[in-house]
Design a protein around this nucleic acid. Sequence first.
DNA 1: GCCAACGTTGGC
DNA 2: GCCAACGTTGGC
Length: 159
Amino acid sequence: MANQYWLMKTEPTTYSIDDLANEKKKTTTWEGVRNYQARNLLRDEIKKGDRVLFYHSACKEPAVVGLATVSKEGYPDSFAFDSSHKYFDVKSKREKPTWYMVDIKLDKKFREPVTLTELRAQKSLKEMVLLQKGSRLSVQPVKKTEFDKIVKLAEQKVS
DNA sequence: GCCAACGTTGGC
DNA sequence: GCCAACGTTGGC
């Protein structure tokens, strides 16, 4: 099956694209997702090789800040098993994990972020999950056309 | 810091 | 199973 496209949110104060860029292999685990709808995507839908829009939320300038690729698909979120960790969840058991994570690898940090305001200004992006009222999903599907459009917007900004 | 929207919890 | 109360997300 062809690659699919996703958007993953992170608060840059918690984990930013620069943090990812500074990782040894530019790769990180995407743990801590504690929402069932997003969990289902991580566990069942997101495949190795899928492309990811890396999004900064809850910050001064919410924006898509770069691109990543899924390097390891859904496996149990082991942080949920660690009682000393903030992502610990007593309900999640090793033999029957509640939560899942993936690994992603940075492809590219945009030289200029594509801001939420700019996304909203695009007619062709009107149906993006991100832009729907009340949409809070931290892992969400993106259409190929939407992904391509955002990449193009990022390229236009620096040309 | 405010607050709307959403998800989860728990009493009944 | 309903729904009020509470907690969280996240733009502004």
